[in-house]
């Protein structure tokens, strides 16, 4: 794993990717720092971090778009997958390389609040909390980008799909606001989910009967739940999409609260996507 991590991290610096990525972040941090801290005289650096969360949406696809696409396209994955290295090591190495680049970039921006510290007292807890939250947010976004890069051989497609996915995640709180909250639409939504689940099953194992059985069992469960306790469907749709609201968890960190549930949430989200990526690569060998 270390070999892949090392190689991948260096390859960022062999291409313009690392420089573009870092420059992009530093410019945005610089602009917001100038406006918020220097221009408006605010000592609360967490405002800057809050404002540049938008930068993740463009920045993360830049560093994740080539992670696995390039290897598949140039067939260099043949080297790695026929070496005595597990797929998990392969994917983790890639993930950690992107994470390391991101963490270092963010780490350098700490110079900004430190320089502010020379001129007065800072809300240290809020700033540290924001940084931790920002790091976790980025780590989660990277796992999404990693997964997308395993789906295609085209870097541009990989970048755009990641970009779109991250926008949806960013706007999730807004989307939740307009979703219907009544029971009937929730049931329809739940049924749709079961259909999607059955299709995913079919995609994974190519067996129409098992997929159909999964679908039917899901329908039966929903039907039973509806007759036993229809109350649980109230607000189900918003609750479901709420699980994907990555930004909501960030708010607690930016207030200087070390939210353990948020940490676990972000970590499990990343683990899920890393796991899906591993599964995806394993599956390619079988198809």
């Amino acid at each position: 794993m270390l070999a892949i991590l090392n190689k991948e991290f260096k390859s960022y610096f062999r291409s313009p990717v690392a420089y573009v990525f870092m420059a992009f972040f530093f410019i945005l941090f610089g602009i917001y720092f100038s406006i918020i801290c220097l221009g408006m005289g605010a000592s609360d650096y967490s405002y800057v971090l809050g404002s540049v969360s938008i930068a993740l949406i463009i920045g993360i696809p830049i560093i994740t778009m080539r992670l696995l696409t390039e290897e598949t396209k140039l067939k260099t994955d043949q080297l790695i997958l026929t070496s005595p290295v597990s797929v998990t090591d392969y994917v983790l190495g890639k993930y950690l390389a992107a994470l390391a680049l991101f963490a270092i970039t963010i780490g350098i921006t700490i110079l900004q609040p430190i320089s502010l510290g020379f001129f007065g007292a800072l809300p240290v807890a809020k700033i540290i909390g924001s940084y931790i939250g920002y790091l976790f947010l980025g780590a989660t976004f990277i796992s999404i980008g990693l997964f997308v890069s395993s789906l295609t051989e085209n870097q541009v497609v990989s970048a755009l799909v990641t970009f779109a996915a991250l926008i949806v995640v960013l706007l999730m709180d807004g989307i939740i606001q307009v979703l219907p909250k009544d029971r009937r639409s929730a049931i329809i939504f739940a049924l749709l989910l079961i259909v999607v689940l059955a299709i995913l099953f079919y995609n994974a194992i190519n067996n129409i009967y098992i997929s159909a059985i999964v679908g039917v069992i899901g329908f039966i469960i929903i039907g039973t739940l509806y007759f036993v306790n229809p109350l649980i469907f109230d607000g189900f749709t918003t609750k479901f999409f709420g699980w994907f609201s990555l930004m909501k968890r960030y708010d607690a960190f930016s207030k200087g609260i070390f939210d353990l549930s948020g940490v676990i949430y972000y970590i499990s989200f990343s683990v899920l996507f890393v796991f899906l990526t591993i599964r995806k690569i394993e599956k390619k060998r079988w198809s």
């Binding site: 892949i4 090392n6 190689k7 140039l74 067939k75 080297l79 790695i80 290295v85």
Partner: peptide, 26 residues
Amino acid sequence: YLPEIPPLYMDMTVKEYLKFVCELKK
């Protein structure tokens, strides 16, 4: 294994590449 298309990283030097393979093969 030498596949049909040699699995080379074009942006590496030969030495870097072979060193990477050494690490990969432990």
